[in-house]
Nucleic acid binder design. Structure first.
Lengths: 229, 229
DNA sequence: TGGTTTTTGTTGCCAACGCAACATACTTAC
DNA sequence: GTAAGTATGTTGCGTTGGCAACAAAAACCA
């Protein structure tokens, strides 16, 4: 699949944290790991597909999305390099996905056809145990992220959604000023709002001195007080 | 804590699937498992609390909720007997929760202060491995459930939220007719909608012959066609 | 039993925001 | 360069659905 050479940096991937290259290669061989290249706008899985791989974004950006019959897309999660996805099928491999995985920018993805191997293998080796722990951590993290996403969607007004999102980003970046991985259209899709309404509200918030922004870079100017909205 | 005797049915809990009573008792001892009774309307964890236990609902109902400063509650997930919660802290035990866990009906909850033990223990025993696999499955399942919840919230109209929810319930119950675990107020909180608006819309949908219902029992009268809404 | 609380249903009002349509800026290609 | 495509901003209009306030029914309890 990969046309030009691509050399992944396995040691920097959370999934393989704590393993050395030798162990990683073992794992890759044992589970028949395969790197695939996906061009922008491709789909890795479509809603309805059977999922049989654990996937790791090595490079690029993948979006977990839900499309309605008119092609309106809702972005559920944005997955950058290092992210693991389709992990929610670990318990039920082969099941059909209700969401799609969309390639937002040219990506390299490690596909691990785990099957039931993960569960069956007599994993007494240190590496296997470590891998298992990593998987638990990653699953837990993704869980937390989904809960945070839910928190945003729960908000009733557009403004409070925006603020909730901004505060999460500020927290994750450790700064009140940050750059988001979305353009306006995608931000609207992520917040499940209308693009024009979003722009309108952002302008208002800037007027009122709550935030400032230029393109994808935002600055939160307020204290935490308004969070309850 | 427990005033009157309560004997849990450990063998029926997904977390302990595949273990026999002897193994379960080992695990419980090793991790200092503790059963706590919580009366209705209590909080197990409040948003902001440090979480250091993996929790299992043995009896009753617990809700994962997010409250805004006016006490308006949004129900993120409904957790019945057998459900595991606070599992998203496995990777980061001791972190603060952004959501609260609310006791919807008198409950017995198994608290497992896993700490780092789960990761540190040299788990060569068959039981430990099995437990680890169960945890992965459960995490994956909860993940899937959160994604499904997100799907509901993504919908733009109230009617499509209701339909999305109903279709999930129908699927989970394997029948177009089912009883939901919510009263009207809580269903509204679960769908992030206004109670009166919900009642209004339900009435309309009944008029149009889309659904029928009596109290908490609903029947979906339509084919899947309208799902795209 | 009757009173109190909780749950559910009903309705009028109105604003937030989705929608559509268009204007303007920016980006890419040739 | 210019043309085509894409991202962003602006605005008027109209509907959905949130809100509040009340009515009715059901559940609870003393």
């Amino acid at each position: 699949m990969a046309v030009k050479m691509y050399t992944p940096n396995y040691l920097e991937i959370p999934l393989f944290q704590g393993l050395d290259m030798e162990e990683i290669n073992e794992v890759l061989q044992k589970f028949h790991g395969l790197i695939k290249h996906f061009p922008k706008s491709d789909y890795i899985y479509l809603a309805g597909d059977c999922v049989e791989n654990l996937c790791v974004v090595l490079e690029g950006t993948v979006q977990m999305i839900k499309e309605d019959i008119w092609g309106e897309k809702a972005i559920i999660a944005n997955l950058g390099a290092g992210s693991v996805f389709a992990e929610n099928f670990l318990g039920r491999l082969g099941d059909r996905s209700v969401v799609s995985y969309f390639v937002a920018s040219d990506s390299e993805v490690l596909m691990l056809p785990l099957g039931r191997m993960l569960f069956d293998s007599n994993t007494n080796s240190k590496a296997s145990q470590r891998l298992m722990c990593n998987i638990v951590s990653i699953l837990a993290d993704n869980n937390t992220r989904l809960i945070e996403k839910t928190e945003i969607l729960c908000k009733k007004t557009l403004r409070s959604k925006i603020l909730a999102y901004m505060e999460q980003e500020a927290r994750n970046n450790g700064s009140r000023s940050f750059t988001i991985p979305f353009n306006r259209t995608d931000l609207a899709n992520y917040l499940d709002a209308d693009r024009s309404a979003l722009t309108r509200e952002l302008a208002r918030m800037r007027e009122e001195g709550l935030i400032d922004y230029r393109k994808n870079t935002f600055e939160l100017k307020v204290k935490e007080h308004n969070e309850g909205l």
